[in-house]
Every structure is written in C-alpha cells, then in structure tokens.
Design a protein around this nucleic acid. Structure first.
Lengths: 259, 259
DNA sequence: CGCCAGATTGAGGACGCTCAATTCTGGTGG
DNA sequence: CCACCAGAATTGAGCGTCCTCAATCTGGCG
C-alpha cells in the first residue's frame, strides 16, 4: 500500500525531529533515488558478510536484523518498521556484520550509498541528522541489551510491546491498537527466549488484562500497567521533538500523557 | 601513564584504518582541544539524562556504559579502553541515555562537541571516519546482544575475553597476555550473569587450561580453543585494515593467524 | 592488627528450556 | 462448500542452567 515516497517522508520527519532542515535539505531527502523491491517473509534482503552498495529504507512491513551463533540459534538485534532506514550504517561500513531479513511481507526501497553520501556532503545539517538517526538505533540496541539481560520474561515482553507501540504511533498508528505482523518465534528471537515461553508469557499478560495479541493485531488495554510491568522509560527512543531540559528524567514507567 | 596525545593517536589510528586521511585531517584530530580528568573507580563521569557538551576520550583505564532497571540491576552495554571515544554519539545526541562510569581508575580527555563538529565539518573524509567509528561501536553492541542472549555462560565469557584480547592487541598489547583491570562483578554486569556464576565459569575455563585471570592479568593459554569455546568471529570488530573482498567470511572461530 | 572489597565455595530453588503432543488458523485445490 | 495442508499457537511434563543467599577466605591498606 505504502509508496517509497511515503517511506521517505516518514524518514524525513524523523530526521527533522531534532534538527531544523531547510527546504533544500528536505528536497534532497525526498528526491533520494532508489529501486523498490518486494521481499517475502523469512527471506534475507541483505546477506551476512556481503558487501552491498545500498541502504534499505523499509517502506512497508516489518524487517529484522539477525545475529546467529554457530549452532544456528538466532538473535534479533533490531526490528524495523516503515520509515526506518534499516542499514543506514552500511553507508560507512558496507561489509554487513549481520543479515537483514523480512519478517512479514516487506517492501524495501534501496538507496545507493553514493546518493546518500552526496546528500550528506552537500548539507552539514543533513549529515548531522543522518548520523544522529544512526545513533538512535544504537541507543535502542543498548536498551534491548539491558532489557534482555536484566529483566524477566514478563517485563521483557511488556517492554518490547511498549517500544513498538510508540514507534508505530510515531508513524501514524494508534498506540493502543496497532498491527504488528510478527510471529511468536520472532518475538522469541528478539527477546532471547523460546517461542514456547513467549506464548506462556503472552497468556499471562492477557490474563492480567494488560494486552491482547491475536493474529497480527495488538491491543493494549492498560498502557500504564503495561509500561509499569515493562519498566518502560521511553526516553531512549528519542521520539520527542524536544526534551524538557531539566536534567530530570522522571518519565520512568511512562504515564499516558507522554507525547 | 598515558597522555591525552597518546589517546588521540590511538583514536586517529583507528579512524585511519579504513579511510585515507590526509595530513590536515590528522592534524585536526591530534589538535582536538579538551581537558584531562581523573576518575576514581566506580564513579560516573557522564550521568544519566544529563546534557553534556563533551565527548570523552578514554586515555587510560577501563570505562563502562551502564544501563539499569528500576530494581537497580545493572547491565554494561559497552566497555571502553584507551583510544576509545566513549560517547562519540553524544556529539549528535547530547541527552545521555545511559551513564558512563569508571571501572578501573580512569583518565578521560573531554573534547567539546563544538570542536568535534568543527573538525567534521571541515573534512568529509573525517566526517565519514567518525561516523564509521560510531557504527563500529553499534556493531559490537549487536554482537553483545547475540552473545548474552544466545550463548551459555562459558561461551559468553570466552567470547568477551577474545574480544577484549583483540581490542587490547590493537592498541599495542599482547593478545595472550594483557592487563584487564576489571572485577568479576563488572564482568557479570557485562555478561548478564551474576558474579557468583562468573566466578564458577572462570574456574571452569581455568581448569580446562584455556586461560588464567588472576588479579588484573589475563593470560590466554590456548587462543584457538578459547575462540572455539566462545564461538568467536572477529569480523564485527572491524579491526583489520582491509577485508578480503571475497564475500566469504570463513573466519568463524578465528584461527591464530588472524591479523 | 583490623578492616574492607573482592573472590571463592556450598546448598537449595526457580525461571526458562527441551521435547512432544495437540489444536487452531488461514490458504489451497477439488 | 468442504477436505486438506502447513505453519503457527497452545499446552503439558520434566529438566538444567543459572540465581539466591549465605558463609568463608584472601589480599591490600590504614
């Protein structure tokens, strides 16, 4: 349904969130060339170790970055939704250290590195915004490490759902009722759990009246309780235009007036 | 012992690993202004949520980036050694999403963001190298997530030791005999384990003749076996000047002729 | 000599895993 | 319209890795 143009708009909106870009900057982003590609679920569109010459903008669907052990155990190290430039870092580090794979049916828009570098060289503001976007991905990664390493299954799952809710909200969805096209196996890969345990934990959250996840649809019944259960502080997502410059964080277990 | 100048040299060497920087670029890096600060073990030098105006180059000692849960459980999301620009990303995202803390006695060199931006604006090559350095940190973070999420304690510990060995080697140490000034509590924080379990696992590796970790000194007796035990593939560290452009990775369980 | 942080060891418990069977769901073709 | 199928979700039973809670030991230092 979504077009590459819409994907670029979503990305631009995020870039512009904390940097003031002028009309020329915006044009450059929206005019980024590329080619559209449709990827079936569970198919890689960036293979491990391959040197690739494009950044992949997610236009539609959910994509994941996978790490893997010798024994074949998989770990999702990132989940990407429309408007995410999934391997922006490949612009400066073309040798992929992890694979990108479609989780649902995905549409990507492949933007040549050369075009990306061209845009970034022509505008310092844009360069900074792009670099920052990379940095936000790293901040999310750090939060995932803390989440998976130091919280139990229930909190972990709640935390991930909260994160995805806010990220979907930022691209126009309803925070408490959105489509999240992912299987329990993939949730397990993201959370360093097994799908069996994800299933039981999901049931627990459902029975406690916090959320429902049926088929592709998430419905959050009690945002505050879910954020509390997930020990969720949305700061790391850097979704707000401006931070209250108080030095206070104070948004632990984000209350529902966030945003 | 180390001077800020030496720290900057180490950092520059890494920047220059994959980008050809000219004399002017090198000068700009080596002339980066800043102020030296000594930090005692277990003291934060970048506090959570505080907006800070400098990037911290580690000149001496070991520093760590910490995440934390509501209950106070801590997770190390990065370990930094001399020559690391520990919070380079703060140049574009000043609101710290995690704290930086000294693990051993640490000397940092605080470089004002303004100086960093100035250098980066004056040279596209430098801009790209700096952005890439940020990206390598993210690649390491991703590997940590996979490591902690999908490997058992023994492999996890072996993997981390291998990583640190190569990173120390890159700044002049001996891969198989180096000083790693860190407590078992901090190792546990890095590996998402408890210190008790780190202790037992360390003993196991010692009894199997793989390594010795006494006091601050690591001695690796059998590199190949340790890399095998840790399922260690050094690619993600991006320490080599050039990658064999074959598309083959082939360095799983890095053999000792790496580097 | 006393103190303290860190390392070490023991015993018991729990959270999440493994293996396996069963049910549900949506899509396909007859 | 139904039979069929594959993939996903669900549930059960038993188990193991790692955690918790101590207690003890060690080495450096005032």
């Amino acid at each position: 349904m979504n077009s590459p143009a819409h994907g670029l708009e979503l990305w631009l909106r995020r870039l512009a969130l904390r940097t003031s870009l002028d009309a020329a900057d915006r044009r450059m982003v929206l005019d980024l060339p590329g080619r559209v590609e449709r990827v079936r679920p569970n198919h890689d569109f960036v293979r491990l170790g391959e040197r690739n010459g494009e950044c992949c903008l997610i236009v539609e669907g959910i994509a994941g970055r996978f790490g893997q052990t010798r024994e074949g155990l998989r770990q999702l190290t990132a989940l990407h939704i429309p408007g995410d430039m999934a391997d922006l870092h490949s612009a400066v580090l073309p040798q992929a250290a992890s694979a990108l794979s479609a989780i649902s049916e995905v549409v990507v828009y492949r933007v040549p590195h050369a075009a990306m570098h061209g845009a970034v060289q022509r505008s310092d503001r844009l360069a900074r915004a792009v670099w920052r976007d990379c940095t936000v991905d790293a901040a999310i990664l750090g939060e995932w490490l803390t989440n998976n390493g130091r919280r139990n299954a229930r909190a972990r799952l709640a935390h991930l759902i909260c994160e995805m809710a806010l990220r979907f909200e930022a691209i126009g969805a309803d925070r408490c009722a959105f489509t999240f096209d992912i299987s329990q196996v993939h949730l397990a890969d993201a959370l360093s759990l097994t799908s069996v345990h994800v299933n039981r934990t999901l049931r627990e959250l459902r029975e406690q009246g916090l959320l429902m996840l049926q088929g592709r649809d998430v419905r959050i019944h009690d945002w505050d309780a879910l954020a509390q259960a997930g020990d969720f502080d949305p700061h790391y997502l850097h979704l707000q235009r401006e931070h209250p410059d108080t030095g206070e964080r104070g948004m632990r277990a984000a209350s529902s007036d966030f945003g």
